[in-house]
Simulated assay, not measured.
Amino acid sequence: MSDILGVGIVGCGVVTVFDIIPNLLDTEVEQRIRLVAVADNLPNRAEEIADKFNIPKHYDSAEDLCQDKDVDIVVIATPVPSHLPNALSAIRSGKHIYIQKTMTLAVEEANTIIDAARKAGVKVAAAPGNHLRSRAMQEIRDHIREGKIGKICWGRAQRGARHEDDIRRQPGSELEHADPSWYYKPGGGPLRDAAVYDLHAITWILGPARRVVAMSGVSIPIRFWQSKEIKVEMDDNTHFILEFDNSCFFVISSHFIRGCSKVPSMEIYGDDGAIIYGGCATGSYELWVKGSGRNRLGFEEVLAHVGAPEISGAEAKGTNHYIVGDILHLADCVIKDKAPEISAEHARHVIEIIQGVYDSARSGKAVELKTSFNYQH
């Protein structure tokens, strides 16, 4: 096998056109992997994108792309409901696969991919892996493992957006035809689109969760994109609590409501300090520890460390972009025959949490979680 692996992309939507392709064509990236083909089931879409970016081949189906002998890795960047059939097409053709978040709709589908890949002897990497390349996240996990803030007791995270307002989908934009309706239909929703980042990150830091309890519903039942009315059929406002070992609880708010960039994206509290990540934090994160002074609330907090600002995902280029970083990681694992750190098993645990959130919201009861993954303490 050549040290430069061929990559084929299934799905030519917003993420592929704005995030994946431009970064795959970076000079440094092309020394390690080469984009050789794209596919999309919309008529002429793949051909249009191939012509625009000078990509050698284009196909109208995932099945045809997966048969291409020059493709070693298939990147699946389609809406979540079609991840399973596209992944199985790639596996049957002996291709290694990178699946955009969220890997599948259900745990059973994740098991199908994991079992099929194991039998075929191919590797699966599942997004998102941005926490693996984030200096801030690496440092945060190190601080926690070193006991800088004591026993972890609780935390919270929030994330949300309104895809119908995305400037890239408006008239005159290159992707004005990219209908965001699927985000608001069964299989979409803010958990699979947004909370998945926080779920991968916090379980990477704290390990597998034990159970979940949630409340969820539709807050904005009708939305508008350009002149089209979108009926919201998937919960757009979801809030839940995860329980980890040793009575550690984590609250996550995930929504398709307008957000606020000044609010921290993640907070982690221990009995000796706290870590504030993103949003109003100075730099990438702030590490607060217990000082010697006291006030009416107890010990005073001391700002012990400020993480250096990082390039945001939207601004990162080449190997700094998390999706391309994930694909490069998979390519390295293929060449060196090692297991990807962004594993399908980890993604399966996140999928079980998402299923558990919706089950809990409907039943009004906490849901026990059964899956796990190879967590490095």
Rank of each mutant, 00 (worst) to 15 (best):
M1D: 12
G8I: 05
I9A: 01
F18K: 10
I21W: 07
P22L: 13
V29G: 09
R32I: 09
I33Y: 11
A39I: 03
A39Y: 06
A46R: 02
F53H: 02
F53T: 00
N54S: 14
K57C: 01
A62D: 07
L65N: 00
C66D: 01
Q67V: 06
D68N: 14
I73T: 09
I73S: 07
V75Y: 08
A77C: 10
H83T: 09
L84H: 02
S89E: 01
S89P: 01
R92V: 04
R92M: 07
S93R: 10
S93Y: 04
H96Y: 01
T102A: 13
T112W: 03
I114R: 07
A116Q: 10
R118W: 03
K119V: 14
Q138M: 12
Q138T: 14
K148T: 15
Q170P: 05
G172E: 08
A178N: 10
D179Q: 04
G187H: 09
P190T: 05
Y197H: 15
H200G: 04
A201W: 10
T203N: 04
W204S: 10
W204T: 10
L206N: 06
G207F: 00
S219Y: 12
I222K: 14
F224N: 15
E229Y: 04
H239I: 11
E243V: 00
H255N: 02
V263P: 02
S265G: 15
M266C: 09
D272R: 15
G273F: 12
Y277E: 09
G278N: 01
G279A: 09
A281P: 06
T282C: 02
S284I: 03
G291R: 03
G298M: 06
A304L: 04
H305M: 11
S312V: 06
G325E: 11
A331Q: 02
A331M: 05
D332I: 02
I354C: 07
K365C: 09
A366D: 01
L369T: 00
K370H: 12
T371K: 00
